[in-house]
Amino acid sequence: MHTSPAKLLILIALSLVILVEGRTVLAFFGINIPPLETALIGLVIIATLVIWAIRPLRGSPTKSE
């Protein structure tokens, strides 16, 4: 594990929050992301985070918080 489950959960939550608020900010600059695409981006971010988190660390024993 690259991080602890607790931190993974918080990273996912923060990335969702940044996605929702970031979408609003981008819209001010004329970049509109439709809801469906936003949801897809969210899923991709969550998947990426989960894969990164559970990928085994090379050479070091599993460490958890």
Binding site: I10, L16, V17, V20, T24
Partner: peptide
């Protein structure tokens, strides 16, 4: 409990935004 507090955080951001 950890999930609960994080869920509140996500929920409030969706709703207040």
């Amino acid at each position: 409990a950890l999930f609960q507090v994080v869920l509140w955080f996500v929920g409030i951001v969706f709703m207040t935004n």
